[in-house]
Design a protein around this nucleic acid. Structure first.
Lengths: 140, 140
DNA sequence: CCGAATCCTTTTCGATACTG
DNA sequence: CAGTATCGAAAAGGATTCGG
């Protein structure tokens, strides 16, 4: 488990620094890719530039409010760019920046893992819940 | 951008299926790796098995409540195993399962990205906020 | 030592209505 | 079309207390 050793080593470094809160890249990045919509939006934009309403339709349950908010945060972090066309009615186009595209690689890794092991996880959860329903018969 | 094409293609498939809610592996997995503590705990466990109190100390600000809750969820999904030693006072050891270790790879990819681009992101945010503070001088 | 249970505060997010 | 503003429900998360 080489991966584990790498992670553990890095973690030691972070621990060494004073814990400034935002000094930890893991937390900083994960807080964003972790929130409900960011990754879905990135996936849509992976296909190419898209307008606000197109993204809104492409992501199943998102509200305009959340879409605006998430797009803002992505733009703020430099992951996407925003371009306004002064037509009437005005249209706005969002597109991945170079930085945003560079994040696609790691995301694909995660998505691939998720697809591969989703059944396994669901099975584990079902088994766990079933065992729990028998009310501690496993000696917990 | 090969990665983008892959993602877009997969996304089309998911869209094809009826949106059962939990049919989407991305959401299901991301909801878990996204919550504040999961990844940090996995990183600690990447180093090897650890006891409850050790994890609690290793993760800076976590409360017992959240640690218990997150460990449960990880155990439920089959990512970690839990072993109780009937000593007194009892001690409990957590350890990554094979499934959990397989997740380390994608996580390393993400962490590496985070480390590499963290400065860039922080710079982008600072610039964005500065431009915004000038109150729409960029024509927004 | 490990963890469950309760309480309470903060944050998140959807619905709705309104602007340019 | 592309947002903004406000409100309320719901969830997350911390502090504390109790139990095995």
């Amino acid at each position: 488990m080489n991966a584990g050793v790498q992670l553990a080593a890095r973690y030691q470094e972070w621990q060494g620094q004073p814990f400034d809160g935002s000094c930890c890249p893991v937390r900083d990045v994960l807080d964003h890719i972790g929130d409900k919509w960011t990754v879905l939006i990135l996936i849509v934009l992976a296909d190419g530039a898209a307008r606000f309403s197109h993204i809104c339709r492409a992501v199943p349950d998102i509200s305009k409010r959340m879409l605006t908010q998430t797009l803002r945060e992505l733009e703020r972090g430099g992951l996407i760019t925003r371009h306004v066309f002064p037509t009437k009615p005005p249209s706005v186009e969002y597109r991945l920046s170079a930085l945003g595209e560079s994040l696609l690689g790691p995301i694909v890794g995660l998505v691939a893992w998720a697809e591969t092991h989703h059944d396994e996880i669901r099975a584990a959860r079902a088994h766990f819940d079933a065992a729990l329903a028998e009310n501690g018969s496993d000696g917990r």
